[in-house]
Design a binder for these strands. Sequence first.
DNA 1: GCCAACGTTGGC
DNA 2: GCCAACGTTGGC
Length: 158
Amino acid sequence: MKTEPETFSIDDLARVKVEPGTGVRNYQARNLMRDQMQVGDDVLFYHSSCEPPGIAGLGRIERTGVVDETQFDPRSKYFDPGADRADPRWICVDVAFVAKLRELIPLAALRTQPGLEDMALLRRGMRLSVQPVTAAEHAVILKMIKKASGASRTRARS
DNA sequence: GCCAACGTTGGC
DNA sequence: GCCAACGTTGGC
């Protein structure tokens, strides 16, 4: 799941512990959250539009079928005048904090990593803020994280 | 239903 | 700041 750290970073997630993935206004990304994600799934927390972009931490899906309240808020930049309370258009997931990486895994490192050649994130023109990761890619990335001296010990309590 | 224009994303 | 890629919009 991608986010701009200026808007919401892994440090923010560490502080609040659980956060809904609001503001996604792309049907493909919404469908991934709505149809593909399950409680307990691991999340790679990616920082975009920053220097350097890359995987900044780990999360876990805490709850699915979460109504994105920003669609009903006229003051929100994510307000959707066409959204219907009775049948909400924008559904997201709650993401729980798991860990902040001691060292961010930069996009450039992902690009050169064997085993990630077909990763969605690395495809040209890929802009989806929510993307699937295969089990094999996930395993490769966890290895990279371990090698880079691992996730910090600031784990979420409970 | 087509498609050009436009807006947004996001790496570089 | 540039620009490629892609989604959305709206006229027809």
